[in-house]
Design a protein around this nucleic acid. Structure first.
Lengths: 203, 203, 203, 203
DNA sequence: AATGAATGAGTGTTCATTCAT
DNA sequence: CATGAATGAACACTCATTCAT
């Protein structure tokens, strides 16, 4: 019977994206565990069971949210890392790119911040740990090059510096609201200024 | 009738503290919602129901963990704020005190970071919002004094600076492990150095 | 957004009524507290959790059972009270109406008898106390009118008489079984005969 | 070691009676199932576990309360039934005795009213059903004798009459408060007057 | 006699998930 | 595509009961 089609993998990519956006918003606001499927469905104007036409499970929703975000993030990062910039310029570009991602994927970033450690224990989310590792390599490498080149201080524990910069940037997702008074680029500029030169005036 | 003496309810604060320490560790590791009372009981070597001899509810456990932590935190902070130090010395003292608290109450700080926004919506945890407000006042005030005195830069958005310093410090609770290679004071020193002078070398 | 229609919550009052009838039967037989939600579900041929698709809580089940009963009861009573009958005819009509209610809502009446005092302490069940008060007013008023008119004895404590008649009628719910050898009207007739004329023969 | 005595069956009959009185009061007020052992212990000024020095179980408490009450009740009843009175005088004596028992054992009577049907299903409480049977026999016999002698009406269903008188009397336990304005004997007198002669005036 | 602490079975409730319609 | 109804496992919490001290 040619009239009965099995639902395609992407029945309507539009609706899918809408629903994921809704889910991401709720996950970010309430936390993954504390968010019920019913709540997401409410927000989407349907019943809880209906979501299962679009997604296999609640888990597959976060999965898709996070992997989509990380894919886009690494597209941007890889471009920067491949550009052959100097260490300081690389840091500037990475930070700027990060704030752009926060601007575009705020809920996903917030979920990533809050839940990734917890989720990464499951095999399905192994890519979270992978990403973390690549991230660390890229940053530590850049910082080390910078110390060697004399554009970053050599009297600091480099892992501490790494964590400092990393957290400094990403935590912003917890308070950032798109459409606020500062553009992502402006926030990046000020953050970079603080990170690079400190909050005490240079004499 | 003199026979109706209410028997004392909290006879051994010892056990209470032990159990709360266990609970805090699990809450910090798995998240409050994802932590089952059974899990805490397991870790404590008893059955789930037995916890209710000591505590009213799972909620009252986090409550006691967080309020105990905040009480101690504010003791330290108030001492610093009352000492009449200059803005820069105040910032140094507050940051150092913060890392000491992270060292002493790491699980509580981690819980606070992850759950306080969510918990603060309940009336019972109103003190979390209060604390947040006091915190912001203390920090913003100090930073403003510093800008006026010329010991902090005047070309930065002060709220951005506040968030920068605040997050930078507290997020450390997510990776800090007591007994590591750096003492809290050493970490504080390096963090302060980065925050105040930046990671680029002063020429 | 027109896509956000809230789906209707009570689409099939049918099932609801069936389930409430089942619940009422069990509550009446075992007592509200002694009845487990699992038991009701068993009787209804489903799992305990499934009941929560239809009802918010066990409490809301008794609530609906009792309030539905009282609503119908007062419809009948109000009709009688508004009919402008003499005191003796009013008493006859109220008693007859009561036995009809016992016939139609036996489980609800039994629950009301056993649990109302206990439930009425909760704000949610305030209407139980209200009903009690209205009930008392209606009866006492009728009895007083009867005494004044000389159709009821004036040598009896009127509150005692009230309790006597009230209990006499409602306790019947504890042994009455619909479909027995006497119709509600026949039982009412005999009860009225006893209450009005006594069990000793009139000489 | 002669110093260690096993607790006697009646360690201090005084205390036992006190505790049972307390328990009965709570059972009557809240219902057997809804009453926690902790609550009884609270009321008695001790901890829940301590009650188990005096009683085997919560069940054995009601057991002792109810059986003590029934023993005393039947002492009174048997005396009346053995006195060789006429049917009308027997009814008067039984009702009066009943109100005296309500006066002396109000909580026990209330418990009996509310819980006996439920408890009687357990073998341990078989005596409740036995008592019920004896009770029914005694009353039905007396009423039948009365009808035969012409001192009770012969136009009433005798089982209906039995239930009428029985319920009428015992339900009083639900509102009776010792020390009120009417003595048990006065209440009995008025009840008997209503039951025998009705609430309509004899012409 | 009574306490402090624990047990273990059970209770109401929640929630992700399924599936016939 | 979506609904209505149900499942079943898990959860926080309660409570009668036990027992060493």
């Amino acid at each position: 019977m040619p009239t009965k089609k099995k639902p395609q993998v992407t029945p309507t990519p539009e609706r899918r994206r809408e629903l994921l956006a809704t889910a991401a918003e709720v996950f970010a606001a309430q936390g993954y565990n504390a968010t019920t499927v019913r709540r997401i469905a409410d927000e989407a104007g349907m019943l809880a069971g209906s979501l299962y036409y679009h997604f296999d499970s609640k888990e597959s929703m976060v999965d898709e949210i996070l992997s989509t975000f990380l894919d886009e993030l690494w597209q941007g990062y890889d471009e920067v890392l491949a550009a052959g910039l100097g260490p300081r310029e690389t840091v500037e570009a990475l930070v700027t790119e990060s704030f752009r991602e926060i601007d575009r994927h705020r809920p996903a970033v917030a979920i990533y911040q809050k839940e990734s450690r917890h989720l990464a224990t499951q095999p399905r989310f192994a890519y979270l740990a992978d990403s973390q590792t690549r991230f660390e390599k890229a940053w530590l490498g850049t910082l080390e090059r910078g110390v060697a080149d004399g554009v970053f201080r050599d009297d600091l524990d480099i892992r501490l510096t790494y964590r400092f910069v990393r957290d400094t940037v990403w935590v912003a997702a917890s308070w950032y609201r798109p459409g606020g008074q500062h553009s992502p680029e402006e926030i990046a500029r000020q953050y970079l200024s603080m990170v690079l030169d400190g909050i005490a005036p240079r004499t």
